[in-house]
Design a protein around this nucleic acid. Structure first.
Length: 447
RNA sequence: UCCUCGCUAGCUCAACGGCAGAGCGGGCGGCUGUUAACCGCUAGGUUCGAGGUUCAAAUCCUCGGCGAGGAGCCA
């Protein structure tokens, strides 16, 4: 019995007879010869059937086998430069074929382009297409590399609750649900506050799970349900935070380059742009970024773009500002020291400059913008209480959070990383919705 | 919430006031090296909905529906 192999390892089997289990992605018939492009979940491989080699009845079935039919094919592996596929360069001569299921002929996804709405309505089928398959394989590796780096660097995985009692950051819109006799509960938009409790037990922790934001955002960078990694570290200041971020992001990019090269190439990604992503990353203060934006605005000749770059000290950067800054670098860039007024209540003030805080965003190059956002947290009890009052947050909800500052409080820091944003950047794709299997947006909860 | 754009065959689009069309996909046939194969034949329409202007509306106008891109907010 020939071995059942994975297509992504086909190069190891050159000259041997093997079996692949998969689905017919495309078929081209040439009279007395048929090409079947078969995908098995790990890759795409061309299988070639000659009329003379097979039973006439079986060959006739192959000639009219619909796209997506399930098959088990056995035959010899041959290196052939003409053979398409991922990884490609090898084909299988069909000696034996079992048709597990003949697909209906009305499969709706064609091999040509589809509109966004149609593709998303058929997301359960779209994920079979090579581009979507490649993106989601990269996503899986992004997640694995993230955990790998954290686990190897002394972090403890601490999952935080998804059902939470109140708004963590006040303003952002929450998804609401009934919670038995306890009133309302809300889907978590961050695990950070819980992780600030966890560090005093475990030192360095992370949570990694789905996050929910009921914001009415309608852009290529937003989902209502997305996956966020949130590390939090005791005895860590802003500089320590940036070091951890750049080491981790470097590891993620380099591991994807190592393990997912065929997928990146099939997406048409320029690998040289990724090979360059190595720590240290440039660091620029909000003040200097503001100056840079001013200079770039002066040089901008397009009046429409000039208007978008309008900027006064004190406002947060919008997407056009971030793009302008990141275009000056070929690596992700840290932008730190944002105005306190535009950031969350728990961020540590800059020593001697209370109008700015020890916050940092990591902005990805090529216009991808913010992939990580974090800060050093306020460690002083009275200052934190003052901030909660200023923001008119309910003190009772933060009782436990304030208590953390009474029993062994230390400087500590943390950040959040959006998995879909990182995946989009690494893949070089236009829209974040393709970086998750079943995206949830303001206009879509199906399928 | 605001601004802009779109909706025609299963899909991607054309027709822009005068007979509703093409490519892909489907069906039938041909072809021993295809690369989103190619060639021939063929079936397939409530032009998003309602109302209006007109001899005549997919096309112009009004209202509505649905969607997309962007802004704000953020990962």
């Amino acid at each position: 019995m020939p071995e059942i192999i994975r297509v992504d390892e086909i190069s190891k089997y050159d000259g041997q007879e093997v079996t692949v289990q998969g689905w017919v992605y495309n078929r081209t018939d040439k009279g007395k010869l048929v090409f079947l492009l078969v995908r098995d979940g790990t890759g795409f491989v061309q299988c070639v059937a000659f009329k003379g080699d097979l039973d006439e009845k079986i060959f006739d079935q192959l000639m009219r086998l619909p796209q997506e039919s399930a098959v088990i094919i056995t035959g010899p592996v041959r290196a052939d430069k003409r053979a398409p596929g991922v990884p490609g360069g090898y084909e299988i001569g069909v000696k034996k074929i079992e048709i597990v299921q003949t697909a209906d002929a009305d499969y709706p996804m064609s091999l040509k382009d589809h509109g966004v709405d149609f593709a998303l309505d058929n997301r359960h089928l779209w994920i079979r297409m090579p581009s979507q398959w490649a993106i989601l394989r990269v996503r899986s590796t992004v997640m694995a590399a993230t955990r790998e780096w954290l686990d190897n660097n002394g972090f403890i995985a601490m999952d935080t609750p998804i059902l939470t009692p109140a708004a963590a950051e006040g303003t952002t819109t929450l998804f609401e649900t009934e919670y038995f006799d306890e009133g309302k509960a809300y889907l978590a938009q961050t695990g950070q506050l819980y992780n600030e409790a966890n560090i005093f037990a475990f030192g360095k922790v992370y949570c990694f799970g789905p996050t929910f934001r009921a914001e009415k955002s309608k852009t290529r960078r937003h989902l209502t349900e997305f996956w966020m990694l949130e590390p939090e570290m005791a005895f860590c200041d802003l500089d320590g935070l940036m070091e951890i971020e750049e080491q981790m992001v470097t590891h993620i990019v380099q591991r994807v380059l190592r393990d997912r090269k065929p997928e990146l190439l099939s997406l048409g990604r320029d690998l040289t742009k990724l090979e360059n992503i190595k720590a240290p990353f440039p660091r620029i203060s909000y003040d200097d970024a503001a100056k840079m934006i001013g200079e770039l605005r002066e040089k901008e000749t397009d009046p429409e773009k000039k208007e978008l770059l309008k900027f006064d000290w004190g406002i947060d950067f919008g997407a056009p500002h971030e793009t302008a800054i990141t275009n000056q670098f070929d690596k992700p860039v840290f932008c730190y020291g944002y105005p306190t007024a535009v950031k969350a209540f728990y961020m540590e003030p800059w020593p001697g400059r209370p109008e700015v805080c020890k916050s940092v965003d990591l902005l990805a190059p090529e216009g991808y913008g913010e992939i990580c956002g974090g800060s050093e947290r306020i460690s002083d009890h009275d200052l934190l209480l003052k901030r909660i009052h200023e923001q008119k947050l309910p003190e009772s909800a933060f009782k436990w959070y304030l208590e953390l500052r009474k029993y062994g409080s230390v400087p500590h820091s943390g950040f959040g990383m959006g998995v879909e944003r990182v995946t989009s950047w690494i893949c070089g794709i236009e829209h974040i919705r393709e970086a998750i299997a079943f995206p949830r947006t303001i206009k879509r909860v199906y399928p």
